[in-house]
Design a protein around this nucleic acid. Structure first.
Lengths: 352, 352
DNA sequence: ATGAAAGCGCTAACAG
DNA sequence: CTGTTAGCGCTTTCAT
């Protein structure tokens, strides 16, 4: 059994001929513009004919004429184009769907532009008239290709970046600070931060948030160590005066962190509280389920679309919006600090 | 600091005027078609002018004229449009990225059409001339909206469905069978299958694959029970003659399964081997890391794009391709069956 | 209230 | 080898 595809091809001229009016009138009726005055009788006839013939207004012709496509390019930088179905690019996948859904809510369409190491973004694909604006994400370097996107002259908004012009980003600092506050409220006095890569702006922000949070909580630097590698983390957990809580750069690190913790003979959350960042699928997959900071992808997507629409409308727009608020999602991986090595529930901070 | 977006707008006429040739010649040069004979001199002049003026060929005008948009609609049915960033729709997200990347490899673009409970797919968005074909996924019912996609008359390919016409799907049966074979090879004689919902075709296929696998392995039905709920699974694990291996409908169930297993006082893989399906992010997030069947999303995406391109080219195409092969990914959750209740390593199947 | 006509930017016959 | 011409399907002045 085989099949062939086919297309209709009913044009506005067909329905004009059918109704005995001009294509202009058809256009007026179908646009439904208030300032176009058409008699009720012809309007009904046109509508009926359109319905009957199964007319669909051609978006291409319309866009060519009006200069509006209602379509946004979404640049997704990935490492390699293969093995996408595996455990990688969770952030990009989550954000791509969030952006597509946000665009749909705003009456716009998107086209993902997958950018891999092998596949650079060609200017002729970026600036060929299909897009009214660009959304960029997952980037932390002012790469050549970022410049090539800006070179299109199209409105651009970056999500979660620090390298470019128009930006929407999460309140990384506030998020980690709320995590530290939460832990401090549970009586933790020694809190470790396992930070992300220095070259990632979000990682820098989150680390800064931890430092701020530790300071606000009155934790002396010694009791709020920042580590970079798994080895350092393991070494810290092995010490007698080990921390009673560990805050992670992101949820992706949770499984590995739990491995280290278990290897040290510790339990979560009885011996050690654990907090992540992102609230992606991993947070509810690990055990115990992870207390984590929600990365507000939906809100950022909405904000990005809004910024783009404003720019498209010719409105002057701030280069950077205030950070989008995050929210701590408390699950099972955090608990009151136990009395014991490094932990205490009865005392407040030693510097107070 | 605020900024405004702007656009260039260099047309082929501009470069024709600049070069002193006609727009037709410009078109010939820029199309690079072999049958269009242009002198090397003018060709170079045109190319140079295009480069100098920063000309970008307008895809809309081109598409309107040629009737080709090189764009595919990708219908993603989701429950609700909110909270996409969380642990939901992993399959849809993985597949959306796989399809977008596959399309890019094939020189095509995609537009995700997010379809939620609140947002139906409007025919005027589906059949407005932007799309040359449609990819559908995540569907298992011949819903009204599926019909509305087919009603566009566009070439359609479904990924992972059983309800429609052109289909690309994974070899669910073979995948689960390979899982059973793997377990049998490890000496397991009592293997339980925790099946997925009856109304999902893929779940039916996988369950059938288990039955086939159990039969081929010579396991009598009693020793290859199929359960539906968490309660049944827990009850089975509590029995003295409990199975030594558990095969899951998908990776999503792995965390819950591990909870049940631990609650029964069992360890994975020492007391019980566990196998998933999909090889999504959860497989490497749980501990021990999950042996699972790879759902070949990339290959399915490539196949779907190929099918669509063939249909677009007017080639008659089979309604359904042979199932895309799966592959067992062995990790840490499977091990030789221990001697003990229900398990044995020295004996073969009791019916041999 | 409706029609005629121009044209968005491009390509494809057809002429020359 | 290159130019002229005629649209793709739609919107939008400008007439009437």
């Amino acid at each position: 059994l085989t099949v062939k595809g086919g297309r209709p091809g009913v044009t506005s001229r067909d329905i004009a001929r059918e109704t005995g009016v001009s294509t202009a009138t058809v256009s007026y009726v179908l646009s439904g513009r208030a300032d176009a005055r058409v008699s009720e009788k012809t309007r009904e006839r046109v509508l009926a004919a359109a319905e009957r013939l199964g007319y669909r207004r051609n978006a291409l012709a319309r866009a060519l004429r009006t200069g509006r496509t209602y379509t946004l390019g979404v640049v997704c930088p990935l490492g390699s184009t293969r093995a996408l179905g595996a455990s990688r690019f969770i952030y990009a996948k989550d954000l791509l769907l969030a952006v597509s859904a946000a665009a749909a809510r705003a009456g716009m369409s998107t086209t993902p532009l997958i950018r891999t190491r092998e596949d650079p973004l060609l200017p002729e694909h970026l600036a060929d008239g299909r897009f009214e604006g660009m959304i960029l994400f997952g980037v932390y370097q002012a790469d050549d290709w970022v410049r090539s996107v800006y070179a299109t002259g199209l409105p651009c908004v970056e999500i979660g970046m620090v390298s470019g012009l128009h930006q929407v980003h999460a309140d990384h600092r506030g998020g980690v600070r709320s995590a530290v506050e939460h832990l401090r409220g549970l009586g933790h006095r020694r809190i470790c931060y396992w930070r992300g890569p220095e070259e990632v702006p979000a990682a820098r922000e989150r680390a800064a948030g931890f430092l701020e949070g530790a300071r606000d909580a009155g934790l002396p630097p010694d009791w709020a160590p920042v580590v970079t590698t798994a080895e350092e983390t393991a070494a810290l957990l092995a010490r007698a005066d080990r921390p009673t809580a560990l805050v992670l750069y992101n949820d992706e690190r949770a499984p590995q962190a739990l491995d280290l913790i278990h290897a040290a003979g510790l339990r979560v959350p009885e011996d050690l509280s654990l907090v992540g960042f992102d609230n992606d699928v991993r947070a509810t997959t690990v055990r115990p389920q992870l207390t984590t900071v929600q990365n507000p992808l939906d809100a950022m997507a909405d904000a990005a679309i809004g910024l783009l629409q404003a720019q498209i409308a010719g409105v002057e727009v701030p280069v950077s919006l205030p950070p989008v608020p995050t929210r701590l999602v408390v699950r099972e991986s955090t608990a009151p600090a136990a009395a014991g090595p490094g932990g205490t529930t009865e005392q407040r901070s030693p510097v107070e």
